[in-house]
Design a protein around this nucleic acid. Structure first.
Lengths: 180, 180
DNA sequence: CGCAACATGTAAGCGGTTACATGATTAC
DNA sequence: GTAATCATGTAACCGCTTACATGTTGCG
């Protein structure tokens, strides 16, 4: 499933412009499916060329024109087909964990800085999830499930790092003490 | 940080062939940094061309020859440089979560199949982490931290799915009952 | 006899990122 | 004035995936 399919999925929930979709990629989808304008606009063009979405140009006063896309019947059928796949991937690519594998080559200060940076990012995500909850009422069960999932693993990540950071940052003699 | 750097990091722990590294990518690194032969062999060639690793060709009887790579002093310096970066990414790309966002377009059976598939994958990871623990003694603190992290979020994922699957697969009238 | 494990590579292609390009309006 | 928000796009590039290509030994 690529950016094209996800855009189509977002449009199944109501019409939107590329700019609107980008905001969704940055907020509710940020923790598991990021995409930039360089992916979104070509995806929408391609969906339009395939007849999977309609496009209406909308003039606005005091603002640039916008292209509002709406899913077609063909598009909905196509989306259902893509969703019928059961072998869906869930991939993680983490420079953070890769670096931690080689912690023995770093100073305690370096490790601490990396860990702090990661915890900060996780906290930003948690703040985002809290914001989502405030306007939770309008959401589908699916979106609630996905955001709950995000919160669950984000909290687990943060807890794990905070509980185990001393195994990497403590001086060797302190580590022996902690092990006793 | 790309496959090249991770290969260099693995070699900082002892000499190995491309084939050996692949096994490590498939086991201990699988849950956060996958790589295939098509990435590994070119990475090793490139590291060799840059003088960051040495290469020794080893003839074996009853088996194909192998190229054993060893990190050089330049390589170690380069690796430390790469590791000094504090802005390390941790990216998730999940078709699974994307599909769950559009659960309202699927049947309960379809959703159940996808959820079951994911739980199976998570269980396979957990079995892998259990295997790792058996020969845990030889590991660095870094590797223990990373595998512990993997287990923590894998368990959290599994628990979350099992606790919340009925919000997506229950019939509408049952959902109302559950909400009360 | 066939399959798994051992072992190394190349090449095409794809999907996504990054940087570039443009321009109006509003708020500080 | 200057930054942020709104708004749409292109093009080069990069890194990874996939498929292809080849060959041996050992085990059941």
């Amino acid at each position: 499933m690529d950016v094209k399919t996800v855009c189509l999925g977002m449009l199944s929930d109501g019409e939107a412009s590329g700019y609107d979709l980008k905001k969704q990629f940055e907020s509710t989808f940020a923790h598991f499916f990021a995409a930039g304008y360089g992916s979104i606009y070509p995806a929408l063009s391609s969906l339009h060329a395939d007849g999977l979405v309609d496009c209406r140009e909308e003039a606005q006063d005091g603002r640039p024109d916008r292209k509002v896309y709406r899913i077609t019947d063909d598009g909905l059928a196509h989306l259902r087909g893509a969703l019928s796949e059961t072998n869906l991937t869930h991939r993680v690519r983490s420079e953070f964990l890769a670096a931690m594998c080689f912690a023995h080559l770093m100073s305690a200060e370096q490790i601490a800085a990396i860990l702090d940076h990661r915890v900060t990012e996780l906290s930003r995500y948690l703040a985002m999830f809290d914001e989502f909850d405030e306007c939770n009422g309008e959401w589908t069960d699916g979106m609630r499930f996905v955001c709950g999932f995000g919160r669950a693993i984000t909290e687990a990540s943060k807890r794990y790092i905070e509980a185990n950071r001393d195994t990497l940052t403590a001086a060797p003699d302190l580590k022996r003490t902690a092990a006793q």
